[in-house]
Computed example of a mutant assay.
Amino acid sequence: MTKFIYAAAAALLATPAFADGHAATGDAAAGEEQFNRQCVACHIVADADGEVLAGRNARTGPNLYAVAGRQIGSVEDFRYGDSIVEVGEMNDGTVWTEELFIGYVQDPTGWLRETLDNNRARGKMAYRVRDEEEALNIYAYLATFGAEEAESN
């Protein structure tokens, strides 16, 4: 029983938590593995100085640094599709939460159509993360980058 308590405590301490409700519940270590399998072909994680922290200098998708808590569709100089920008501008700036991220990466165009209540909405991201747990883990991994920026948003 003691091992279980220690394991649970370690898991809670390892999970990034944000004061504004952008907590990540997945396994960041497993998320790193999934990011390297599923995301690196299109995305990087690069800090404000341009240092690539994860990925292989891909530029197809936006930089995912500080994605947790960041306004959707707001990476400067990235050419987003109109639908994702529209979602980001809703409610004076909709931000990525774990729930929104999971919904989006599992079915980008379907999520956009449902969110915008517009069957003509389209996403530029064609790839889908099929497994919800993998999507949760990827979000947990990405939430470890730029946590201090997300807390100030």
Rank of each mutant, 00 (worst) to 15 (best):
T2A: 12
F4G: 11
Y6C: 13
Y6P: 03
A10Q: 01
L12Y: 08
L12C: 05
L12P: 01
T15I: 04
T15P: 07
P16M: 08
A17S: 10
F18Q: 07
F18G: 06
A19N: 14
D20E: 14
D20W: 13
T25L: 12
T25M: 11
G26S: 02
G26P: 01
A29I: 11
G31P: 00
E33L: 11
F35R: 00
Q38Y: 05
Q38H: 11
C39A: 04
C39Y: 02
V40A: 00
C42D: 11
I44D: 08
V45L: 10
V45K: 01
D47V: 09
A48N: 12
D49M: 13
G50T: 06
G50I: 11
E51M: 15
L53T: 07
L53H: 07
A54I: 08
A54M: 08
R56I: 14
A58W: 11
N63R: 03
Y65A: 10
A66G: 10
V67K: 06
A68T: 10
G73P: 02
G73M: 15
V75Q: 12
E76R: 11
D77G: 05
D77S: 06
R79N: 14
D82V: 10
V85R: 01
E86Y: 09
E86F: 13
V87T: 08
G88M: 11
M90N: 04
M90D: 04
N91Q: 10
G93R: 01
G93Y: 03
G93T: 06
T94M: 14
T94N: 06
V95E: 14
E98R: 00
E99N: 15
L100K: 15
F101Y: 07
I102F: 00
Y104S: 04
D107R: 06
D107G: 12
G110E: 01
W111D: 05
L112Q: 01
L112N: 02
R113S: 05
D117L: 09
N118D: 11
A121Q: 04
M125N: 01
V129R: 07
R130L: 09
A135N: 02
T144P: 06
F145C: 05
G146Y: 03
A147P: 06
E148D: 14
E149T: 13
E149L: 14
E151F: 13
